[in-house]
């Protein structure tokens, strides 16, 4: 049984003229447990919208997204929040660590709304991303690469079945980008989590089992995604 199953997914947004236009129109997508997928596409192709739909942050207008046997589209907002905390990890391009919190606390925040805070596991995750000696550092005291590693540890804090990574290397220099990518992939493998990584970096194809071009997957196409960030 697939971990993630998307069928007939449609998301529309109003255009400037007020007409509803399709931003995402994906007839079918399956992701197997532990699978690592690279989702490539140009800016504005609906990549982030698709991730937000899978995460239940944005609600689909049509279709279904079944994750771990649960149709996210049929859940209430509160149930989607709980589902997200339980089943998903999210890595952002801008890391989105909370200022004022240490590395360890940022990881624990990831647990707060899901499985509950497990400090020893949070410390263990920081060890595994090579920041065991930076647990008490705040984001402003960390380099860009270190911030991303904390973000990766946070995404895995609830032992998710699926990790969504939205341009996770976009703000990193090539060396850190390579290290971060390897880290995300290896940690997902270790944890048995599937990975959907969005990037428009063409040099990543050979590092993933499967690469999907959003231009082919998303039938809404570029025209429908105008004005939307991705």
């Amino acid at each position: 049984m697939s971990l993630l199953s998307i069928k007939g997914l449609v998301k529309r947004y109003p255009s400037d003229s007020g007409a509803q236009i399709d931003v995402v129109r994906i007839p079918s997508l399956l992701v197997e447990p532990g699978e690592q997928i690279l989702l490539q596409g140009e800016s504005g192709s609906g990549k982030s919208t698709l991730l937000n739909l899978i995460a239940g942050i944005v609600v689909a207008d049509e279709g279904e997204i079944v994750l771990s046997g649960e149709n996210i589209c049929a859940l209430s907002e509160s149930e989607r929040d709980a589902h997200r905390a339980r089943s998903l990890g999210y890595v952002f391009q801008n890391f989105n660590l909370l200022n004022g919190y240490t590395s360890l606390e940022n990881v624990e925040l990831g647990m707060s709304f899901g499985s509950g805070v497990d400090r020893s596991y949070a410390k263990n995750l920081l060890d595994r991303v090579g920041l065991g000696n930076r647990q008490s550092y705040r984001p402003e005291q960390l380099s860009q690469g270190q911030k991303q590693r904390v973000a990766v540890a946070r995404a895995l804090a609830n032992r998710p079945k699926l990790v969504l990574a939205d341009e996770p290397t976009g703000n990193l220099d090539p060396t850190n980008a390579k290290l971060s990518l390897e880290l995300i992939q290896s940690l997902c493998s270790e944890n048995g989590a599937a990975l959907i990584l969005v990037s428009h970096d063409p040099g990543l194809d050979d590092k993933f089992e499967r690469t999907l071009e959003l231009a082919e997957l998303n039938q809404a196409g570029m025209a429908g995604a105008e004005g939307r960030s991705a």
């Binding site: 907002e77 509160s78 905390a85 998903l88 999210y90 989105n96 909370l98 925040l109 707060s112 709304f113």
Partner: peptide, 16 residues
Amino acid sequence: RRDIAVLRALGAKKMT
């Protein structure tokens, strides 16, 4: 707003 959005993305409910 960004922090709140992050908390929500981590699974915090609106009521939280």
